[in-house]
């Protein structure tokens, strides 16, 4: 977990998650260098983006001669997957979920219930 803040992959993902749409490497580079002490080189950013695409974290779309990069999944989806990872390994995950369900405010609970109901009817169908 060393150098969490300094990880270039993380910075690239952060920029792309914050961006309204797919970015070219040049746009990505401009946003990364906006508030950096040391400007990054074009090649560095392109290599990192390419590596992330190989790992399946980014998808690229052809745009003229260049590529545009965008995250394959939203940041929240990763958080959910990490959470599910933990909960399936915890021996008492049923109890955790029950305590969570009791703790959410009423309007969130209603929302949760709607989602669950939709999912239940999907499962039946």
């Amino acid at each position: 977990m060393a150098g969490l803040a300094g990880s270039l992959e993380r910075s690239v993902m952060d920029v792309l998650w914050a961006a309204p749409g797919p970015l070219r490497v040049r746009e990505l580079l401009a946003r990364l260098n906006e508030n950096a002490d040391k400007a990054l080189a074009y090649n560095t950013v392109q290599t990192v983006a390419e590596r992330l695409a190989q790992k399946g974290l980014l998808q690229r779309t052809q745009d003229g001669l260049a590529f545009r990069y965008s995250p394959t999944r939203a940041r929240e989806e990763y958080a959910v997957e990490l959470m599910l990872d933990v909960l399936t390994d915890a021996p008492d995950h049923g109890a955790i979920l029950a305590r969570f369900a009791e703790s959410v405010p009423p309007e969130d609970a209603r929302h949760l219930l709607d989602v669950l109901r939709r999912r239940a009817s999907d499962d039946w169908a």
């Binding site: 977990m1 969490l4 990880s7 929240e76 958080a79 990490l82 979920l97 969570f100």
Partner: peptide
């Protein structure tokens, strides 16, 4: 490493944005 944030006060702790405690 991609998703979690550093905890302000504890150097050995990461914070994950998720409502389940």
């Amino acid at each position: 490493r991609l998703v979690a944030r550093e905890h302000g006060r504890h150097a050995d702790v990461l914070v994950l944005d998720h409502p389940v405690p």
